[in-house]
Amino acid sequence: MSSPLLSERRDGVLVLTHQAAPWNRMGFAYMDALEAAVDEAARDPQVRALLLTAEGEANFSVGMDLKELLLHSAARGGAEAVLDQRLRVLRKIELLDKPSVVTLFGFCLGGGLELPLACHFRLAASEGAQIGLPELELGTVPAWGGSARLTRCVGRDRALDLILRRRKIDGAEALRIGLVHSLHPLAQLKSAAFELARELAAQPRPSVAGVLRCVVGAEHLPLADALAVERQAVLACRDSGNQDEGLHAFLDKRRPQFPVP
């Protein structure tokens, strides 16, 4: 049986493609493979950014494989253990000190939105996207951190509107409310996402890691603690040699040549 996750490395970017078209349901095998890939990316200095996408142009994902959950969760330690793994994997992506980019197209529902909400950059198709957290249709609530992350992303009122009314919004509305960063024609979405990931991968590694620790890792800390995290990030850039090179390049009116970590 082939893996539901294709892993490719290009220009410092680890491209992770879900291979379960057309629906790309997030089953046990996919989440296992995704967790392993994220752990590997965290260890590998040659990986400097992640791109999460799905095969084809039909759908990013309709979320969890509900039939698999109902029939086979006991073998995985029960439904609680299954949900715990998904929360863990998304938190690993969110706190990774390497930037992540994700594509949203077609159905991006339930887990198919909760996974993108854990990524640092979200790009959506300008046509055909249907994005939402319709868990109330199943008599439940978002279970992979969707309600918390969506609220932090678009605000309480918009999160309530989307979740309680089971709304599925298109890319244009997602951009308007700040749920995604940019829109692209479907045929160009994946290439645009890769170019963004490659741009991020080309940035000085300690500086990128520091920004992510400051903006994401320290987001909810008291101001004094967040400032302490920022100071640590500044010192790490200095110790890496990036800061000295950046300052000298500026003064010399040349492009900086940051050391490879």
Rank of each mutant, 00 (worst) to 15 (best):
G63N: 10
V62Q: 10
V101D: 00
L66R: 10
L96Y: 06
L90K: 01
D65E: 06
A81Q: 12
L83D: 08
D97H: 10
R76V: 00
L70M: 14
R88G: 10
E80G: 07
A75M: 11
G63Q: 10
A74M: 03
L83I: 14
L83E: 13
L69Y: 08
L95K: 07
D65W: 02
V89K: 08
D97G: 13
A79V: 12
G78I: 03
D97I: 02
E94I: 00
K98W: 01
S100P: 10
G78F: 01
R91K: 15
A75S: 14
P99F: 04
D84I: 02
A75R: 14
L70C: 13
V89Q: 05
L69M: 14
L90W: 04
D84Y: 06
A74R: 13
L66Q: 09
R86T: 04
A74G: 06
L96I: 05
G78D: 04
V62T: 12
M64Y: 08
D97A: 12
L83Q: 13
L70I: 11
K67S: 11
K98T: 02
P99D: 05
R86P: 04
Q85V: 00
Q85W: 03
S100C: 09
G78E: 03
E94F: 03
R91A: 15
K67T: 12
L96W: 05
E68M: 09
D97W: 01
V89E: 05
L87E: 02
A74P: 01
L71V: 07
D97M: 08
V62F: 10
E68K: 05
D65C: 05
L69E: 08
H72E: 15
V101I: 09
K67V: 10
A74E: 11
A74Q: 11
D65S: 07
G63S: 12
L90G: 12
H72R: 14
G63M: 11
L71M: 08
V101W: 01
R76G: 02
L70T: 13
S73K: 03
G77R: 02
L83Y: 13
L69R: 09
D65L: 00
D65R: 00
G78A: 04
R91S: 14
L87H: 03
L95M: 13
D65M: 00
I93V: 15
R76S: 07
E68Q: 15
Q85A: 10
S73R: 08
H72W: 13
G77E: 01
V101K: 04
P99H: 09
V62S: 10
E94Y: 03
E68C: 05
